[in-house]
Design a protein around this nucleic acid. Structure first.
Length: 719
RNA sequence: GCGCCUUUAGCUCAGUGGUAGAGCGUUCCGUUCACAUCGGAAAGGUCGUAGGUUCGAUCCCUACAAGGCGCACCA
C-alpha cells in the first residue's frame, strides 16, 4: 500500500485526469479491446448510438440524463466482456441552428441572411456550429461518457452527406419520394415549410363569425378566419343533413367583399352537422382538411394568401397585400356594412405555430418534396412496415405504453414534407434544366443544370443515423458487425421526430430495424415540475453541478428515482446527497486500505475462502446483491439497480460489515486482522466493480490507488 | 373526440394480493482517529374518492375526481 487516501474525494482534481486515462487506454474503441485481449473477438455485441445533440449551444440536464443512462449500460456491457460500441456525434439541426444564427446576426449586425448571401451566411453558421460542437464534446467528456471518439460523426459531414444523397436517390427511384403541389405548413416567420410534427398547437380564445356570402346565398356558414373566405370554392354540408340536401350540387356566383367567387355546394362526411351552421366554407388552398375535401370533389384551388402572410386579391386593391389580421377587420367591416354578419360568438381554437420560430402557421399550396408513406414497396407501405416491426416484436419499446402512442401516430400519419426553404442543411440532390429533372447522388456532368435550392428536413439525415455512422453506403465491417444496434436510448419527446423516422428509413433502405430496443427516458424538470429552460431561468447546468459536486453525483441524481418514461424532478439538494455518497465510498475505501497489514500480497484475494459462517454470509449477500443489480440493469431498471447498489454499499457494507470488523482490526491477533482485512478488501473491490457503471470517476480513482497500473473500466464484472 | 400517464410520509419517488419503504427535510442525542459531506434515535402515511372481485387490496376490475401529456378536430 502506497500513499494513504486523503480524507475527502475531490472530483475536480480527479475527473479530467481519469477521463484522459480512459481515452489514452483506447478502450472506448472495441477494436482496441479486442486487440489487447480485453474483449473476445466472438463476444456478443452491444452497440448503441448517442442521440446526436444539436449544435445549437450547450448541453442541458436532459442530455446529462441521457449520457448517464447510456454510459451505465455501455460500461456494464463492456465490463461484462461484450464487444461494446457507443458512437458519438452531433446533429446540424437545420432549422434550429439556422434560426439561432439568424437571430444572432440580426442582433449583432442588424442584418438578415439575405443581406449576407447564401455562401457567407453558411460560413457563419459553420463557425457557430463548430464552436458549439467543441463545447458539446467537452461536456460529454465531463460527464464521463465512454464513447468511441474515433468514430465520431456529424449529420452534415461528408460521409453522412453521401449517405443522405444515396438514400434520397434510392427512395426516389422506388417512388417513395415525389414532388407535388400540396397544401403544406408554411412558417411565415422562418420563411419555410415545416412538417406536421414541427407544428405546435396553442389554445386561444377566438371569435366565431356566422355570415352569408351574399344576400341571396342560401346557406350561412361560420368561420374564425373571415379573411380566408375570399378563397372559398365550395360550401360543404353533411350528406345526411336534411336542412341542406336540396342545395347539394348547386353552384352560385357571388361577389364577396369585391371578390368574385364561384361556390359549389357539396356533401362530405367530414362535416360536423352540429358545429356552427352545419355548413363549412371550403378553402382548399389554406386548410389541410379543405384541401383533402377539394381532392375528393375535384374543386378548384384558389390561393389568396402569400408567403409573407399577406392577401393576394388583385381584384380588390384595398384588400390586396394586407396582412391577414388587417384583412380580417376589412372583411368584417364589409360584412357588417352589407348586413351579412349574422352572429359573433366566443370560441376556443388551437392556433398552429412553428415549433422553432413561433411563427403562426399559414397552410398554403406549394410545390415540395414528400415521402410517400402510403405507397406500396415490397408488398407493403412505409406505414405498414413501421407498424409491423413493432407489433411483431422486432422492436421493443420501453416503457411499453409508448407503443400505443406510436401506433396512434402512424395511423394519423400523412406524407412527410421533407423540403425546406432554408440554407443550412443537406441540399436536395435534384437538378433542373428547363422541364428536365435529374436525381442522383452527384450532380450531372453536362452543363445548364441547376440544383434545387431547398434543403432537407434535418430528420431525414438523423433518420439514417444508426447506419450512416457505421459507414453506409459502403459495405463496412462495422455495418456488418454492429447493425442493427442493440439499443436506442432517447427522450420520449422525439419518439415521432426521430425514432419513427429511423424505423422508416432503415426499414426501407436496409430492410432491417435500426435497433432492437427503444428505451425512452423522461424529461428533466425542476423541483416544481416545470420543464427546465434557459428562458425560465430554472435550468440547472450539468457542468456547474459536476464542478460543484462531481460528475458521479450528477449522474446518480439523474438515475435514482427515475423510472423509464417518467419525468425526473431534479433539485440541487438531490445532487448534493449523492456527492455525499461519493465521499462515503471514498472513505470506506480509505478505512479499508488504512488497515492493510504490512507486506500484504494481493494474490491472497484470488483463492480466499472465508473462514467463518459469518464471513461466508457476508460474501453470499454481496453476490446476491451484485446479481440483482445486474438483473436490474439488464432489464433497463437503472433506478432500481442504482438504489440497490447504493443501499448495499452504505447500509450494509459501511454500516454493518465494516463496523463489525473494527474490533478485530484494532486489537485482534495478526491472523484475525488479516482475515478481517481480506474480507473487507474483497467486498470493497467487488463493490467498486458494481458501482463503476454508475459512478465511474470515484471508483476508478480508488482503483488506481490500489492498482496503479490497472483500469477498473475494463475489469470483468463476474457473477 | 381518441388515447396515455400520474395521484403512497413535509418534498422527490420506490414497492408488493396478506394491513407500507428509501433518499432528502424535520426533531433529539453524539465530535478519542474511515467519513460531521458523519453516526445513532424519533416523529410523520385511513397508499386520490366511491364501489366491485377476493378469506384478504395500496397493489386486480369499474366509475369518478384532480393534475399532466400525446394525437386528431378546430369550419
Amino acid at each position: 500500500m502506497s500513499e494513504p487516501l486523503e480524507t475527502r474525494y475531490d472530483p475536480g482534481a480527479n475527473e479530467e485526469k481519469i477521463y484522459k486515462l480512459w481515452e489514452k487506454s483506447g478502450y472506448f474503441n472495441p477494436d482496441k479491446c479486442i486487440e489487447d485481449g480485453v474483449t473476445q473477438k466472438e463476444a456478443e455485441v452491444f452497440s448503441i448510438v448517442l442521440p446526436p445533440p444539436n449544435v445549437t449551444g450547450n448541453l442541458h440536464m436532459g442530455h446529462a440524463a441521457m449520457l448517464a443512462v447510456e454510459d451505465i449500460l455501455v460500461r456494464y456491457a463492456r465490463m461484462r466482456g461484450k464487444r461494446t460500441l457507443w458512437i458519438p456525434g452531433t446533429d446540424h439541426a437545420a432549422i434550429a441552428t439556422q434560426s439561432k444564427v439568424e437571430k444572432l446576426i440580426k442582433k449583432e449586425e442588424d442584418k438578415s441572411r439575405h443581406d449576407l448571401g447564401r455562401e457567407e451566411f453558411l460560413k457563419r453558421v459553420n463557425v457557430f456550429a463548430k464552436e458549439s460542437h467543441d463545447t458539446i464534446v467537452r461536456q460529454i467528456k465531463a460527464m464521463g461518457a465512454s464513447v468511441d471518439w474515433s468514430r465520431e460523426a456529424f449529420t452534415l459531414d461528408e460521409p453522412r452527406s453521401l449517405a443522405v444523397r444515396t438514400a434520397f436517390k434510392k427512395m426516389y427511384d422506388a417512388g417513395l419520394i415525389y414532388r407535388g403541389n400540396r397544401v403544406i405548413n408554411w412558417d411565415p416567420k422562418g420563411q419555410t415549410t415545416v412538417s406536421d410534427d414541427e407544428v405546435v398547437y396553442e389554445e386561444r380564445k377566438a371569435k366565431l363569425y356566422t355570415f352569408r356570402y351574399s344576400k341571396d346565398f342560401p346557406i350561412p356558414v361560420a368561420t374564425t378566419r373571415p379573411e380566408t373566405k375570399v378563397g372559398d370554392t365550395a360550401v360543404a354540408v353533411h350528406p345526411d343533413d336534411v336542412r341542406y340536401k336540396k342545395y347539394v350540387g348547386e353552384e352560385y356566383d357571388v361577389e364577396f367583399a369585391g371578390v368574385p367567387l364561384h361556390i359549389k355546394i357539396i356533401a362530405d362526411p367530414a362535416v360536423d352537422k352540429e358545429f356552427g351552421t352545419g355548413a363549412v366554407g371550403v378553402t382548399p388552398a389554406h386548410s389541410h382538411t379543405d384541401w383533402e375535401m377539394a381532392e375528393r370533389h375535384k374543386l378548384p384551388l384558389k390561393q389568396i394568401i402569400d408567403e409573407k402572410a399577406r392577401m393576394m386579391t388583385p381584384e380588390v386593391p384595398a384588400l390586396n397585400g394586407k396582412k391577414v389580421l388587417e384583412a380580417r377587420e376589412f372583411i368584417l367591416m364589409w360584412l357588417k356594412e352589407n348586413d351579412l354578419l349574422l352572429k359573433e360568438e366566443e370560441t376556443t381554437q388551437n392556433v398552429a405555430a412553428a415549433e422553432r420560430t413561433g411563427g403562426i402557421i399559414e397552410p398554403l399550396p406549394k410545390l415540395q418534396w414528400f415521402v410517400d408513406v402510403s405507397k406500396q414497396f415490397d408488398r407493403e407501405t412505409l406505414k405498414q412496415m413501421m407498424r409491423r416491426v413493432v407489433t411483431d416484436g422486432e422492436i421493443k419499446i420501453i416503457p411499453e405504453r409508448f407503443e400505443k402512442t406510436y401506433y396512434h401516430w402512424i395511423d394519423n400519419l400523412r406524407d412527410w414534407c421533407i423540403s425546406r426553404q432554408i440554407w443550412y442543411g443537406h441540399r436536395i440532390p435534384v437538378w433542373y434544366r428547363g422541364e428536365e429533372l435529374y436525381v442522383d447522388v452527384d450532380a450531372p456532368e453536362d452543363k445548364g443544370w441547376e440544383q434545387d435550392p431547398d434543403t432537407l428536413d434535418t430528420w431525414f439525415s438523423s433518420g439514417l443515423w444508426t447506419f450512416s455512422t457505421l459507414g453506409w453506403p459502403n459495405e463496412t465491417n462495422d455495418l456488418k458487425t454492429y447493425h442493427p444496434t442493440i439499443l436506442l436510448e432517447t427522450g420520449y419527446d422525439i419518439l415521432f421526430f426521430w425514432v419513427a423516422r429511423m424505423i422508416l428509413m432503415t426499414g426501407f433502405i436496409l430492410d432491417q430495424v435500426p435497433f432492437r430496443t427503444v428505451y425512452l427516458h423522461g424529461l428533466v424538470r425542476d423541483e416544481k415540475g416545470k420543464k427546465m429552460s434557459k428562458s425560465l431561468g430554472n435550468a440547472i447546468d450539468p457542468l456547474v453541478m459536476s464542478e460543484k459536486y462531481g460528475a458521479d453525483a450528477t449522474r446518480l441524481s439523474l438515475i435514482v428515482g427515475a423510472a423509464p418514461g417518467n419525468d425526473i424532478k431534479l433539485s440541487e439538494d438531490k445532487i448534493r446527497g449523492y456527492r455525499n455518497f461519493a465521499t462515503k465510498i471514498w472513505n470506506a475505501a480509505r478505512f479499508v486500505l488504512m488497515n492493510e497489514p504490512e507486506g500484504f500480497d494481493t494474490a491472497i484475494l484470488k483463492n480466499w475462502v472465508p473462514e467463518t459462517k459469518k464471513d461466508e454470509g457476508y460474501l453470499k449477500e454481496l453476490t446476491d446483491v451484485k446479481r440483482e443489480v445486474a438483473e436490474h440493469i439488464e432489464k433497463f431498471e437503472l433506478h432500481l439497480a442504482a438504489e440497490k447498489a447504493y443501499h448495499y454499499f452504505w447500509h450494509t457494507f459501511a454500516d454493518k460489515i465494516i463496523e463489525a470488523q473494527k474490533p478485530a482490526l484494532k486489537s485482534g491477533e495478526e491472523k484475525d486482522k488479516l482475515g478481517s482485512y481480506v474480507l473487507l478488501r474483497k467486498i470493497l473491490e467487488e463493490c467498486l466493480v458494481m458501482l463503476h457503471p454508475f459512478m465511474p470517476f470515484v471508483t476508478e480513482a480508488i482503483y488506481r490507488r490500489i492498482y496503479p497500473e490497472g483500469l477498473l473500466m475494463v475489469k470483468k464484472w463476474e457473477d
